[in-house]
Amino acid sequence: MRKYLNTLFVTTQGAYLSKEGETIAVKIEQKIRLRIPIHTLAGIVCFGAVSCSPYLMGFCSENDVSISFLTKYGRFLAMVKGPVSGNVLLRRKQFRMADCKKTSAQMAGFILTGKLANCRTVLERSLRDHKDKMDKETVKKVAGRLLIYIQKELQKDDLDRLRGIEGDAAHQYFRVFNQLILAQEKTFSFSGRNRRPPTDRINCLLSFVYTLLVHDVRSGLESVGLDPSVGFLHRDRPGRPGLALDMMEEFRPFLADRLVLSMINRN
C-alpha cells in the first residue's frame, strides 16, 4: 500500500480498511499497519481482495472521499461515492452544451489540441535527449504531422472529422512509441496500442496507469458538480465516464505515457 499525494492505493491482498475515530486504519493479518487522517485524502483505490467496513464507506462518503475497487490487474469494478455535489444549474448547462453539435465540436477541438500538443512534446523531448538512440527522422516526421493537425485541422466544426483526426494522430504517435523505449527492448517490445485486454507488457502498463488517471479525473469532476458521464469528444454510452475520458486526454502523454517510459528506461 502506498499514499501518493492525496490518494491511498491498497494493493496488499487480504487487507481490511476500517474507521477509527477520524482516521482510516489498514489492517493486514489482524494487525494495523497504517493509519491515515481522513482529511488528508481525496480518494482510495483498492486492488483485488481488499475489503472495507460499511462504517468506513459511510465515513468516506460524508467526507467526500471516493473509494474505487479494481481487480488485481487494474480493471475497474465499482466506486463508492457520496451524494453529488455542486449546482444542478451547472449540470443542466453541461447537458445543453453536450447536446449542441457545434459546441461539442468546439470543446472536442480544445481537448484534442491539448492532447496532440503534449504528444508532440513527448516526442520532441525524446528527440532532444536521445536522438542518437532512435530513428530520429521517423519521429520528427510524426511530430511534424501532429503540428499540422494542431495548426490547421482542429478548428473544424465536424465532430466526426475531429474523431477521425484523433484516431489517425493516435495511430501515428503509437507507431513510433517503440522508438522511445531505450532499455529492456526485448522484455518491453511494442508494436501498437491494444486493449480489452492488452496483449503485451507495455499495453498492460498503459491501461493500468490510464485507469488510475481516470479515477482521479472522475473524482475531480464530481467534486465540482459536473456529471463525469456526459462528455463532448466521447459521446454517451451506458457505464462510460465520457467527460472524465475527455478531460484525461490532455494528461495521458505527459503523465501516463511519460511515467511508463520512465519506469522502463530507468530499469
Rank of each mutant, 00 (worst) to 15 (best):
C46D: 03
L259A: 12
L221T: 07
V142Q: 00
M57T: 13
G58H: 05
N63K: 11
R258N: 14
F69A: 07
Q106P: 01
H171D: 05
G86T: 09
I67D: 00
G167F: 05
L154F: 07
S66T: 06
P83R: 10
V45F: 09
K186Q: 14
F254P: 01
K140E: 09
L213I: 09
G225M: 08
F251S: 02
S126E: 04
S68Q: 05
V65H: 01
A49Q: 11
T138Y: 07
R75A: 07
T138P: 01
E153I: 00
I36V: 15
D135L: 08
Q155G: 08
A15C: 06
K93V: 13
M248Y: 02
H234M: 09
H39L: 15
V260F: 01
M247K: 09
G109Y: 03
M134N: 01
L17M: 07
V122A: 09
R125T: 03
F208D: 04
V26I: 14
T12R: 14
K19G: 02
L212Y: 04
L70F: 08
I28H: 11
Q179K: 08
T138R: 15
A244G: 08
K27H: 06
D216Y: 01
G43S: 14
K115E: 02
A98S: 14
D236N: 15
V142W: 00
I38T: 12
V209A: 14
T40P: 03
L123W: 03
D129N: 12
T12K: 11
V65K: 01
K31A: 15
D99T: 10
A117T: 08
A117S: 08
V10T: 05
S189C: 13
A108R: 05
V230F: 09
K156Q: 06
A49I: 12
R128I: 01
Q106R: 14
R237C: 06
F174M: 02
D257A: 07
A108N: 03
Q172F: 14
A143K: 00
K136R: 14
N87K: 12
D157W: 08
E62P: 06
F232I: 09
A143N: 01
V217F: 10
E20F: 07
F174R: 01
H171I: 13
A108K: 02
M97V: 09
R175S: 12
V230A: 10
H39N: 15
G109V: 03
I36C: 14
D236L: 15
I38K: 11
G14W: 12
V139G: 05
A143V: 00
V230T: 13
L34W: 07
E137S: 10
R35P: 07
G48R: 09
R96K: 09
E124I: 09
V230R: 06
V10Y: 03
F95T: 03
V88T: 11
I202G: 02
R266P: 00
N6W: 08
R235C: 06
T7R: 04
S104K: 13
R75F: 04
L116T: 00
K27Q: 10
K141I: 00
M247W: 02
G192F: 08
F47Y: 10
K19F: 08
T71P: 06
S68M: 11
Q30D: 13
Q30N: 14
L77G: 00
I150D: 04
A117C: 02
L146Q: 01
Q155L: 05
D246W: 12
P253W: 08
R237L: 14
F251R: 12
L77W: 02
A183V: 11
A105I: 10
L146Y: 06
G164H: 09
F174D: 04
